[in-house]
Simulated scan of single mutants.
Amino acid sequence: MQRRTLLEFGATWSLLQASAQAQDRKDERAAPLRVGLTAVILADQAAFLTRWSNYLGSRMGVPLVFVARESYQNILDLLFTDQIDAAWICGYPFVLHQSRLQLLATPLFHDKPFYQSYLIGQQGKRSLLSGWSDLKNQVLAYSDPLSNSGWLVAQAQLRAVGLTRRDLRRSFFAHGHRNVAEAVASGLAQAGCIDGYVWETMQLQKMAVVEQTDVLWRSDWYAFPPMVAKRNDNNPALRTLGDALQTMTTDAQGASLLRALNLTGFAKPDAALFEPIKALAASVNMIRT
């Protein structure tokens, strides 16, 4: 009798263990992939991110949630402490932390994985301010300390015209490209460093703030801000995310989401594209090569 009881207990325990393991696997499969990003320049940002996350999640077979933060540093902190799984960041923080990151996909703007940095001024003031050499004693708005287009490019250009940050009357971080445009349009800054893709997208959406600014200067072309993950993260959902992004052009819903982003697709990433940003950072002593 005791032997039978022990056998029944053992069988029950085995069933409970198997059930718990199955539940763990189910919970593991159901765990959402968390993707960090800074503000998307869209009037209906929350609604758009919900549509995009639902679309990607349905293609991946894994729930996906977007986690928005104010700065690239906030996003990197979350990524490196495993609070998010992937991130849409700028090329500058990618080259700073390249040894710790893997590329998942690179957006395509007008079918190319490149964008420019713009120097913008208040509309109608071109006669007073036409370029970098006119910025002495002026107020300059930057986007983010880890932005290629909104900070790094500006440091190289100021150096090229013989100016330092001390030659400016003042400079400040607006914490977002849209905020840079607003600062310039309102006169809070005489000039601003902004992502050209963002400025063009805001113009396409007929945002009043961008119509109150003029483009004074355009940079060379640089690799578009990529989607990344930690280099040592072997979560198979990350590869699935890259594939889902790269195939968005193949169906109507994906194509519609891309149009809303003013992108023409996502491409397989190529680390070599980011070498010019690395060289730019080295030229102003912001990175070792």
Rank of each mutant, 00 (worst) to 15 (best):
L49M: 15
G91I: 02
A87V: 01
P113N: 11
I75S: 04
L42F: 03
P107S: 12
V65N: 10
S58R: 11
T81V: 07
Q73Y: 08
G57R: 01
L104T: 12
L49G: 06
A87T: 01
Q83R: 14
K112F: 03
S58H: 10
L104K: 09
A87I: 00
F66M: 12
T106A: 13
L37Q: 11
S53Q: 01
V35G: 07
L64E: 03
L108Q: 08
Q102D: 15
L78W: 00
V67S: 09
R51Y: 02
L56W: 00
N74S: 15
N54E: 15
F80C: 04
G91N: 04
N54S: 11
P113F: 12
W52T: 01
I41T: 06
Q83C: 10
P63K: 08
M60G: 09
Q116F: 03
D82A: 13
F80V: 02
G57K: 01
S71P: 09
D111I: 08
D111G: 08
L119S: 05
D44Y: 12
G61S: 08
M60W: 10
T81Y: 06
C90R: 05
D85N: 13
Q73G: 12
L78D: 01
Q45W: 07
L79T: 07
F48S: 00
A68D: 12
M60R: 05
Q102S: 15
L103V: 09
V67Q: 10
F109P: 02
L103A: 12
G36A: 07
V67H: 11
Y72D: 10
R51M: 04
K112C: 04
S58L: 05
Y115G: 09
F48V: 00
F80R: 02
Y118D: 00
N54W: 03
D111F: 11
E70Q: 14
R100H: 13
P63N: 11
G36M: 00
S71E: 09
V67N: 10
S71R: 06
A47R: 05
